[in-house]
């Protein structure tokens, strides 16, 4: 990443533009697509929005895994709607990325080639129905904690997409909580299923906020640009403070022996996630990394002839219209 203050401001005209841009950021104004912006700002946004969009569409898989087995028709309808929302959120975000001058097909290619990331959480498997609940409650809960501040992000199209997404996401978290709540009050088998699932998803959900601030590479610059508003550790704390009382309401425990209220800090203390595991999953060695990408690539490749046909039909129709005119 280059420092926008040096190379790009060399030109006198660029210097004026840079000042204008800095002024808008300082005034907490929104940057819009046709505004001049430093290359590094543009690249950072493309990387972050793309990763976010990829996460939405890869995230369809672990939950989609349970649609055909959903245990009641009501749950099935809710789950279809939820997975559909994720496709929609992916589309909102790709559309925001496209305002920065990069095509969705390019971004998808980068995803398929493994050159852009998606949230590592989706590399964990959904092995029981309760996982659909845990994903809604913990994973979507962590995502919302991350995303609400993004509604005020300095880049207009991204901020607007996030407003839409956050509105829709709150339903996701509630339905997840509701699944676990029902299981926790159900048969012994259901209760065990719920607890076992929360035990598996708790730590990965804490990792969703990224490495500790002391080791986070992109944080500082993103904060300066008003892309990021709070640090990884601040958001992680906020999340833990939110889920502890919710776990009590569920009647389920969180698998963290260090969890305790600190009157002094006014926050819950909690343990340290296994960052080695985090790095391993990030590197591609998680339980489902290969499977998720393979699934995505297959859908894309198998759809190639369909997209081609739609294009060919549109071209033929235009030609026919011209001939008739």
């Amino acid at each position: 990443m280059t420092d926008p203050g040096t190379d790009e401001a060399a030109h006198p005209q660029d210097e004026a533009r840079q000042r204008r841009f800095d002024g808008m950021i300082a005034a907490d104004e929104r940057i819009e697509p046709r505004d001049w912006m430093p290359d590094a700002y543009r690249r950072t946004l493309i990387r972050q929005i793309a990763q976010h969009a990829h996460s939405e569409i890869i995230g369809m898989q672990p939950e989609g895994n349970w649609i055909t087995r959903a245990p009641s028709l009501r749950r099935k309808a809710v789950l279809i709607a939820k997975v559909q929302d994720e496709a929609g959120h992916g589309l909102y975000l790709y559309s925001a990325a496209e305002t920065l001058g990069v095509g969705r097909d390019e971004l998808l290619d980068l995803l398929h080639q493994g050159r852009q990331r998606y949230s590592s959480i989706f590399n964990y498997p959904t092995v029981t129905w309760a996982d659909v609940g845990a994903i809604g409650w913990l994973v979507d809960g962590a995502a919302i904690t991350n995303q609400v501040p993004l509604c005020r992000c300095s880049y207009g199209p991204y901020a607007r997409a996030m407003v839409r997404i956050c509105k829709e996401e709150s339903f996701h978290q509630r339905q997840g909580f509701d699944i676990l709540y029902t299981l926790a009050r159900g048969t012994d088998g259901q209760r065990r299923m719920a607890q076992e699932s929360v035990d598996r998803w708790y730590w990965p959900s804490l990792m969703m906020f990224g490495p500790p601030d002391s080791e986070s590479t992109h944080s500082e610059q993103s904060m300066a640009w008003n892309i990021k508003r709070f640090s990884n550790d601040e958001l992680r704390q906020r999340f833990v403070d939110m889920i502890v009382p919710q776990a009590e309401a569920l009647g389920l425990t969180l698998p963290d022996p260090a969890l305790a209220w600190s009157a002094e800090r006014g926050h819950y203390d909690f343990g340290t996630p296994d960052w080695d595991e985090f790095m391993q999953v990030l590197k591609g060695n998680g339980p489902c990394n290969r499977q998720r990408l393979e699934h995505r690539r297959t859908a894309h490749e198998e759809g190639a002839w369909v997209r081609e046909a739609a294009r060919a039909h549109a071209a033929k129709s235009r030609a026919r219209e011209r001939a008739a005119a």
Partner: peptide, 12 residues
Amino acid sequence: HVGSLHAADAEH
């Protein structure tokens, strides 16, 4: 304005 999408033609 709410966003954008890709399609081969206007109807789609």
